[in-house]
Computed example of a mutant assay.
Amino acid sequence: MTVPFYMCCQYVDGKFCFVLHEWCAKLPLKVQHHVVHPAHTFFLLPKIPSKFFGVFNCNICKLPSNGFAYGCTMCGIYVDINCAFIPKEITHDAHPNHLLSKVKPLVKLTKRNCKACNYPMRFRWGYDCTSCDFYIHLDCALFLPRVTKHKCDEHTLSLRYEPAENHISEYFCEVCEDEFSPWKWFYHCTRCAQSMHTTCVPLILQCEKSRMTYDSGGVYNFLNVKFGGTLEIKGHSHHLTFVQGLESDGRCIKRRYVLELSMIFKCLEFALMDQIDHFDHHHPPSLVHLQQPSNKSEEDDDEDEEKDEDADNFVEEEHHGGKCNMCNEQIWSFHLSYYHCESCL
């Protein structure tokens, strides 16, 4: 951390079990007459008791969170600690000449869109400059830092409010590789001419990308969610880990819902079954190992060396053209194993 913090000196699994920013440690225990719910007092809650795994949707920014919150348990209204103390007026680099005032979600704002993400203002809190017809969602205004870093670029990325360097042709995100409109806010490195969606910058791995993440607004949907907790369930020998659902996770084994874009519990133990049931195929595919312990003689090894390397590394076309039917990528020997349906040769 780059700011002062407190920590508990007890260890759990080799790590400090509890860490708090100095600001978070000194939060007031209650807030009265909050603009969202002035009728009742808001109390500081380390965890929402009525919510599974403590996950709730903030009544102001609408983002999910499982951290500290202020709330009224009697009415079931909760706001995360970031939104509990939002200012009435702000200044912003995207509109530097005037103050921006806090505005509630209103029906009359139906035809007003956020300058950052281009989504309607009517459903979420925001800020506006009525004299200039400038509107911005609260989360887009406060949760997008002016500069940030990402492993895809060695330099600092700057938040851009319009096309960079008067370049308005094609823009592609370096994380998800999709094209995007430069009239929505994005992060950009001038030195490398690289750009990224504001929602993709928090992602570490390319496989975490989601084709719909950046369509949900200007801020990464799980920005306020702390992943990594574990859950024990009956009928499974391993603990399940609380993670972000990816496209590769498929569907829920119980209710068949698509897991991408969701908060899910997943077994991270590497245990491959000999045969599986797959939702996209009517036969149970069997596990095939591409590299197994070899008992070949030296003569056999000499013969193998004469084979073409590409033929040695690639699974022949008799297995669906040597490509995975889900991701359409080629299956190579370094993948070690794959699932194959013998009935559909």
Rank of each mutant, 00 (worst) to 15 (best):
S216Q: 10
C117G: 13
H98Y: 14
Y127C: 00
K151T: 14
A193R: 15
R124C: 09
L63M: 12
H34R: 02
Y187W: 06
G71L: 09
I253L: 05
P202S: 06
N82E: 02
C83M: 04
H137R: 08
K296F: 14
S181K: 12
V107E: 14
P202R: 01
Q194G: 02
M7Y: 05
L106C: 07
S181R: 14
L99M: 10
K111F: 15
L203Q: 09
F85E: 00
M273K: 12
G229F: 05
G322L: 03
D308N: 02
G228F: 01
E177G: 07
K47G: 00
F43D: 09
L261H: 06
H92C: 00
C341I: 05
D312T: 10
G217C: 00
S343Q: 15
V55H: 12
F18A: 02
K209Q: 04
L157S: 08
T190N: 11
S131A: 07
P87Y: 00
L287N: 08
C75G: 05
Y161I: 00
P285W: 04
T73Q: 13
H289K: 14
E316G: 01
L159V: 00
Q330L: 03
D302I: 15
A39H: 06
C327I: 06
C114A: 08
V147H: 03
C129L: 06
R191G: 05
Q32E: 11
M196F: 03
V35Q: 03
K102L: 15
H155P: 04
G235W: 10
D300A: 15
H98K: 11
M121I: 04
P202Y: 12
C324A: 13
C8F: 01
L231W: 14
S216G: 10
H40L: 10
D308L: 13
E316H: 12
K51F: 08
S294K: 07
L205M: 07
S169K: 13
W185A: 02
N328Q: 12
F265H: 12
D139Y: 00
V258H: 14
H236A: 08
G14D: 09
S131P: 02
N313V: 06
L205T: 03
I48V: 09
K47D: 05
D80C: 01
H197K: 11
H33Y: 08
K254I: 14
I204E: 11
T110N: 12
R124N: 09
F5S: 00
K30C: 00
F279C: 04
R160A: 07
E179P: 01
L240T: 14
I60K: 02
S286E: 14
I86F: 00
V3F: 11
C129S: 05
N224G: 07
Q275Y: 12
W332D: 06
L246T: 09
K88M: 08
T213D: 15
